[in-house]
Simulated assay, not measured.
Amino acid sequence: MLEYLPPLNEHNLPYPDTIHPIVVHFVIAMVLFAVLCDAIGFLTKNVRLHEVSWWNLFFATLSIFIAVLFGQLEAGLAEPYNAAQSTLNLHTLLGWSLSGILAAITAWRYILRARDPQKVPLAFMGANVLLTGLVFFQVYLGDKLVWVYGLHTVPVVEAIRQGALQ
């Protein structure tokens, strides 16, 4: 069965480069922009910004599941060494959790929008602050996996293949 799979390249991937960061940066931007639009809309009473926020949350929720799927695939192909394993496990757990949290917040936002599209309650703004904190922590973990542990970088992949990293 394995002979039907494409060979892995120097990044230990069956395609040219990682896809997870591309999709996840799209999600991060949409979530943070949604929170910013809601905050400005909340302070200025500009209801159009709440509409912009809703659509950003909606598409971010769809996109986060794609990001998590590619993240799972690429994490499995990374063959993480011992030093990176705990950070990767936490990043994976938080990624799956964030997909559920974002879906729940988006559902809540949909209900709020259906009831009264003119305003967003303070409790929802608090949830936005929590969501922003979780996103920033997740970004920190992802950055650590790439810039500290070098997952899917050519030198690290070569070191793992040669048995230099365990």
Score class of each variant (00 low, 15 high):
Lys144Gly: 05
Pro7Arg: 12
Lys119Ile: 11
Gln85Phe: 15
Pro155Thr: 04
Asn12Arg: 02
Gly133Asp: 03
Ile160Gln: 05
Val31Gln: 08
Glu3Phe: 13
Gly142Leu: 05
Ser97Asp: 01
Ser53Asp: 00
Phe33Tyr: 14
Phe137Ala: 14
Phe70Asp: 06
Tyr110Glu: 13
Ala107Asn: 09
Ala29Pro: 05
Trp96Tyr: 14
Thr18Met: 10
Trp147His: 13
Pro14Gln: 14
Leu98Glu: 06
Ala83Phe: 02
Thr132Glu: 00
Val139Asp: 08
Leu36Ile: 09
Asp116Tyr: 05
Leu145Ser: 04
Val27Leu: 13
Leu57Ile: 03
Ile160Phe: 03
Phe124Ser: 11
Gln138His: 10
Ala104Tyr: 01
Tyr15Ile: 03
Gly133His: 04
Leu32Gly: 12
Arg48Asn: 08
Val139Ala: 12
Gly100Ala: 13
Gly133Ala: 03
Ala60Val: 02
Leu36Glu: 06
Val24Ala: 04
Lys45Tyr: 12
Leu131His: 02
Val156Lys: 08
Lys45Gly: 14
Ile19Arg: 08
Leu131Lys: 02
Tyr4Cys: 12
Asn89Ala: 09
Asn89Lys: 09
His25Pro: 04
Asp17Pro: 04
Gly150Arg: 04
Phe65Gly: 06
Leu88Met: 06
Met1His: 09
Glu10Thr: 10
Val120Arg: 10
Pro80Tyr: 14
